[in-house]
Simulated scan of single mutants.
Amino acid sequence: MDEFSKSTQAFKAETQNDTSQPTFKQFIIDNTDQTDGTHFIAYQIIYKFPNGYGASVIHGLYTYGLELAILSFDDNVDYSIAYDTSVTHDVMGHLTQQELADTLNDIRNL
């Protein structure tokens, strides 16, 4: 299985609440599946944690594998990318499934 297929499988496992993986399903506020071949980003999940931070996780043919950006929420709807956290100061790409779970946990604990 190639890397794209592996990361797609990991991404789908998170959204389908695969019990073999750490789950953050209760924090998902948006889950987009655009696998019709007309979009650059095939999948996107938006997470929002009680601490006011969250994450945008994307995957597609034109992304760097599983890609994560930390979000800062102004309220329940509006958010922007946070470049000033102790987790990272940029978008993170080529994440493994374990790195994704660890990073989501780090964001939840900010």
Score class of each variant (00 low, 15 high):
residue 1 M to K: 14
residue 1 M to Y: 12
residue 1 M to L: 12
residue 2 D to I: 03
residue 2 D to S: 07
residue 3 E to P: 10
residue 4 F to R: 12
residue 4 F to K: 11
residue 5 S to I: 04
residue 5 S to H: 10
residue 7 S to P: 14
residue 8 T to I: 14
residue 8 T to F: 15
residue 8 T to Q: 15
residue 10 A to I: 04
residue 12 K to E: 10
residue 12 K to P: 12
residue 12 K to W: 10
residue 13 A to E: 12
residue 13 A to F: 05
residue 13 A to Y: 06
residue 15 T to S: 09
residue 16 Q to L: 13
residue 16 Q to R: 11
residue 16 Q to K: 13
residue 16 Q to S: 12
residue 18 D to M: 02
residue 22 P to E: 13
residue 22 P to G: 11
residue 22 P to Q: 12
residue 24 F to Q: 02
residue 26 Q to Y: 07
residue 26 Q to S: 05
residue 28 I to T: 02
residue 28 I to D: 03
residue 32 T to F: 15
residue 34 Q to N: 11
residue 34 Q to W: 07
residue 35 T to Q: 12
residue 36 D to Y: 09
residue 36 D to L: 06
residue 36 D to Q: 04
residue 36 D to G: 02
residue 37 G to Q: 04
residue 37 G to S: 02
residue 38 T to V: 15
residue 39 H to V: 10
residue 40 F to S: 13
residue 40 F to W: 14
residue 40 F to M: 14
residue 41 I to R: 02
residue 43 Y to I: 10
residue 43 Y to T: 11
residue 44 Q to P: 07
residue 44 Q to V: 09
residue 46 I to L: 09
residue 47 Y to Q: 04
residue 48 K to L: 02
residue 48 K to N: 06
residue 50 P to L: 00
residue 52 G to T: 00
residue 53 Y to A: 00
residue 53 Y to N: 02
residue 54 G to E: 07
residue 56 S to Y: 00
residue 61 L to A: 15
residue 61 L to P: 15
residue 62 Y to F: 15
residue 62 Y to H: 13
residue 62 Y to W: 14
residue 62 Y to N: 11
residue 62 Y to E: 12
residue 62 Y to M: 11
residue 63 T to G: 07
residue 67 E to C: 09
residue 68 L to D: 01
residue 69 A to W: 01
residue 69 A to R: 03
residue 69 A to T: 08
residue 69 A to M: 07
residue 70 I to F: 01
residue 71 L to I: 02
residue 71 L to T: 01
residue 72 S to N: 12
residue 73 F to Y: 03
residue 76 N to L: 09
residue 76 N to D: 11
residue 80 S to F: 13
residue 80 S to P: 05
residue 81 I to R: 02
residue 82 A to T: 06
residue 83 Y to P: 00
residue 84 D to F: 08
residue 84 D to N: 09
residue 85 T to K: 05
residue 85 T to I: 03
residue 86 S to D: 13
residue 87 V to T: 01
residue 88 T to I: 06
residue 89 H to L: 14
residue 91 V to L: 09
residue 95 L to M: 04
residue 96 T to F: 04
residue 97 Q to H: 13
residue 98 Q to T: 10
residue 99 E to K: 08
residue 100 L to N: 01
residue 101 A to M: 03
residue 101 A to S: 08
residue 102 D to G: 07
residue 102 D to K: 11
residue 103 T to L: 03
residue 103 T to E: 03
residue 105 N to M: 11
residue 107 I to G: 00
residue 108 R to V: 08
